[in-house]
Amino acid sequence: MHYGSLMGEMDYKTVVNSFSAGFTFLGIKRTVFTVSGNMVMGEAEFDPVNMPEVSDEAEQELEAANFDYSEVNTYSDLSYNRLDLTLGADYSIDDETTFSAELIYINFADDEVYVYGDQTGSLYVIRAGVTFGLR
């Protein structure tokens, strides 16, 4: 049986706050320190949907149906926080040789599990090396 359509309205909102900060310090002779950090907090979701009442006739005839859409908004909620942090140092051994080291740290927090499961986790990279210059 067919009783037309039912239509409600959804309100969707995306809110993102993004911060970045950093500094460069050349304070100690031949050494440069750099620090940079980024923090992003993002949420995207829609509000609970209020569907209109179904007619009595349709409700009776479609008795096996469920017209409660009040929780469908929760299936696709997204809420992520991401932190990127980079610490770096360069030390000039002489005019042609520089030693560099860097630490990269990334943390991803998944506060609303979607179809990919909980994606919360961190990754870090430690780098070091020497640059030689020749003219």
């Binding site: 995207a44 829609f46 469920n66 859409y69």
Partner: peptide, 27 residues
């Protein structure tokens, strides 16, 4: 914020133009 660079996450984006599958009424 939505995956795959979507303007909004599914199913909201799809439902902006399409009706929901009528089997969503099944109990």
């Amino acid at each position: 914020v939505a995956d795959n660079l979507l303007t909004q996450s599914e199913p909201f984006l799809c439902l902006s133009c399409h009706a929901a599958h009528f089997h969503s009424t099944i109990t």
